[in-house]
């Protein structure tokens, strides 16, 4: 099994043992980066930059480089060439979340999200409790933050802030915005997801997971919400009246191994998924065909990201394995 399962990795990939927890992966165009638990940011050609004095907790791709938050209380920027620089320092507080949309960047520290544009602080957004997830919408007009008892949706350019409060009792641990801004979805402490249809505030409850969903995202056209947290890739239909009253589709897995990371392809209805045993697969939604990319054995998958054009995939694991796979036509 493992020889064939590694075929794509062996023939089209390059890999390294980075010797630290791979916290996240991201791409600026076709330039990858892996954020590590020992503070290093490993970029294209495996160039290493000391980005934080401690663990990197969060990573996002901005217009001209990567932004990171660390347990050293720093919010930093690392350009594609050159060293990291500090955007802001927050002392003993952790910078647990970062988000970017082109020149707009943001970080969350405790209950507050800080938004910057082209390096200048734009605004500070306060929430009732700690921010657990932070994301811009596809146009960069709005930013959503998850926290206890719901999520808050802000207009980035508003002169006077009047955020939309999306309420649902409980602890919300992550957030995603539908690509056409039709809905906001959060992951929850109780192994379930919650959503709000933005047109009318209709609640969406998506449950049945055996563990917490730590990774989710919409397919490019917004048809499917792809999620981790079960022993298959669980996909909720956001069409034909769904997800309310609809069962999710499931792909791959079935081996009682939890899917830990998902990444929807930026162009096609294809999903990359990583599992707790190290298995990484590609799944084609229409045909339900599965292509193994990396065999089990390298540690629980903790990072998975597509390059901007979707031709390359970055994957990383808790035990420090990192790989770049080229899936372009040859």
């Amino acid at each position: 099994m493992s020889e064939t399962a590694n075929f794509v990795l062996d023939t089209r990939g390059e890999s390294r043992d980075l010797d630290a927890f791979v916290v996240a992966a991201a791409w600026v165009g076709d330039k990858p980066a892996f954020a590590l638990g020992d503070g290093r940011l490993v970029m294209a050609d495996w160039r290493e930059v000391a980005a934080h004095d401690g663990a990197i907790l969060s990573l996002a791709a901005a217009a001209d480089g990567f932004i990171t938050g660390g347990d050293d209380g720093a919010f930093r920027r690392t350009p594609l060439e050159g060293d990291s620089e500090t955007i802001a320092e927050f002392g003993l507080k952790w910078v647990e979340q970062v988000a970017a949309h082109g020149k707009l960047i943001a970080c969350a520290v405790g209950k507050t999200a800080h938004v910057y544009e082209a390096g200048v602080k734009l605004k500070q957004l306060d929430h009732p409790s700690s921010v657990t997830g932070l994301v811009f919408d596809t146009k960069g007009k709005r930013i959503a933050a998850s926290h206890y008892n719901g999520a808050t949706l802000w207009f980035v350019g508003a002169k006077v802030d009047s955020p939309r409060k999306l309420e649902w009792k409980g602890s919300h641990t992550g957030v995603a915005i539908h690509p056409a801004s039709e809905a906001v979805v959060t992951s929850m402490q109780e192994n379930s997801l919650h959503g709000w249809r933005l047109a009318d505030g209709q609640h969406m409850r998506m449950s049945g997971y055996p563990s917490k969903t730590e990774s989710m995202g919409f397919t490019r056209n917004g048809k499917w919400l792809v999620t981790a947290g079960a022993d298959t890739i669980v996909m909720w239909p956001f069409f034909g009246g769904g997800p309310m009253g609809k069962a999710p589709s499931e792909m791959a897995g079935g081996d009682n191994v939890i899917c830990t990371r998902v990444a929807a392809h930026p162009q096609h209805e294809v999903v990359a998924a990583g599992f707790a045993d190290g298995l990484v697969v590609l799944a084609d939604i229409a045909s339900e065909r599965i292509l193994p990319v990396a065999a089990p054995g390298h540690g629980s998958v903790s990072a998975l990201a597509w390059s901007a054009d979707g031709s390359r995939l970055a994957l990383g694991t808790e035990s420090g394995f990192a790989a770049l796979v080229d899936l372009s036509k040859r």
């Binding site: 630290a20 638990g37 020992d38 663990a55 907790l57 700690s130």
Partner: peptide, 14 residues
């Protein structure tokens, strides 16, 4: 809730 997040962050330093 803060402990859940902090433990999740600390284990990254393994």
């Amino acid at each position: 809730g803060d402990l859940i997040r902090i433990v999740g962050g600390l284990v990254k330093r393994r």
